[in-house]
């Protein structure tokens, strides 16, 4: 009786946004008289960082510091329509809508600044620190606060913008399945290393190494949070979780977190992640979305690692100790495979 180490890998891609498109999102951006901006959305922050990503997109597009932008979501009386926070669509769809709204607001802001500085708006640029100045002449400058005051109280202009992003709906051929499902795809490859106990059938995670291609990591900390958390959801899906332990027999379903198995702190292993950025032509700053796909390669990588460790294939999830033991028994014991 022994513990066997093995590793397996899987590679995947993932479509961004609702399949076939047809899922619009809108955004409104406006300035208050102090040159601080509000983004009004009806999109939902589930904990994934919707507010932060759209805030950074808005600040970058306006050319103002991120501290000068606040995202207000989600109120159906003030936030314009959004299809919802699902289908890995937040960054891509809502981000594009915010970008469009911020671009329009920036146009007004630059016109108002041009009027104050008595120059042409096309000769102006933002410094990202709250100032607008003449290109090549930083001393001819005005703060966004002064621009906002002038626009509001002197020029009678509203520094605001509207944005919508829509991938037009496409349809599906009933006979061939021909369709345009998505405009861009994220990619990933993950290696899982496991240790399988051939006496108990238990599988322990040893480490994970992965590479994710996401278009652009708009906020690497949020990306990390998604990828680390998502991988653990994948581990849990592969080895622990089910609402119906004897599926398709629905009986004996868990009712709380005592009965519903998930990995705990003691089951965590190191996970080294590399992020690649191949910008999507229609992504905001090229971004795609890491939301959903990060759990997907983990499941098969673990199943493949178990094969590498002890030579059994478990094709039914979750891969419980019982299933591993039964398979080992049927095989006549562990048959470790060569390590790649």
């Amino acid at each position: 009786m022994a513990r066997h180490r093995g590793r397996g890998m899987a590679s995947i891609n993932y479509p961004i946004g609702m399949n076939l498109g047809g899922d619009p999102s809108q955004a409104l951006v406006h300035s208050n008289p102090s040159g601080k901006f509000t983004v009004a959305l009806s999109s939902i922050d589930l904990g994934q960082g919707m507010k932060s990503v759209t805030r950074q997109i808005c600040a970058e597009t306006l050319g103002v510091p991120v501290e000068d932008v606040y995202v207000d979501t989600a109120d159906s009386d003030t936030g314009p329509h959004c299809m919802g926070s699902f289908a890995s669509r937040g960054t891509h769809r809502v981000g594009n809508a915010v970008m469009a709204a911020a671009r329009e607001a920036r146009g007004v802001m630059m016109e108002a600044a041009a009027e104050e500085l008595e120059v042409n708006a096309t000769d102006l640029e933002t410094d990202g620190r709250g100032n607008i100045h003449v290109k090549g002449a930083p001393h001819r400058s005005i703060s966004t606060k002064d621009v906002a005051i002038a626009a509001q109280f002197k020029q009678g202009k509203t520094i605001s913008g509207r944005g919508i992003f829509l991938v037009p709906l496409s349809n599906v051929d009933p006979e061939t399945g021909e369709m345009s499902p998505a405009t861009c795809y994220a990619h990933a490859c993950l290696v899982a290393e496991v240790e399988v106990d051939d006496e108990t059938g238990e599988v322990a995670m040893v480490r994970m190494d992965s590479a994710y291609e996401l278009g652009r990591a708009l906020n690497p900390r949020l990306v990390e949070q998604q990828l680390v958390g998502g991988a653990w959801m994948g581990v849990s899906h592969a080895l622990y979780e089910t609402t119906e332990p004897h599926y398709p027999d629905p009986r004996h379903g868990p009712r709380d977190f005592v009965e519903y198995l998930m990995p705990g702190p003691g089951d965590i292993c190191p996970h080294d992640i590399a992020v690649l950025e191949r910008p999507a032509p229609d992504g905001p700053f090229g971004a795609k979305g890491p939301g959903e796909m990060c759990a997907n390669p983990v499941l098969p990588a673990i199943a493949n690692a178990i094969f590498n460790a002890v030579g059994v294939r478990i094709d039914e999830l979750p891969i419980t100790p019982e299933k591993v033991l039964r398979a080992l028994h049927a095989q006549g014991g562990a048959r470790p495979q060569p390590r790649w």
């Binding site: 950074q56 970058e60 510091p65 590479a211 990591a217 590399a274 992020v275 690649l276 191949r278 700053f285």
Partner: peptide, 23 residues
């Protein structure tokens, strides 16, 4: 997390101010 900026570098501008920061 490691950012592999060397790959597909010719398809990107990396001169952004707020985008790419771990705010």
């Amino acid at each position: 997390l490691e950012l592999r900026k060397d790959i597909f570098a010719d398809e990107r501008d990396d001169d952004l101010k707020e985008i790419g920061k771990g705010t």
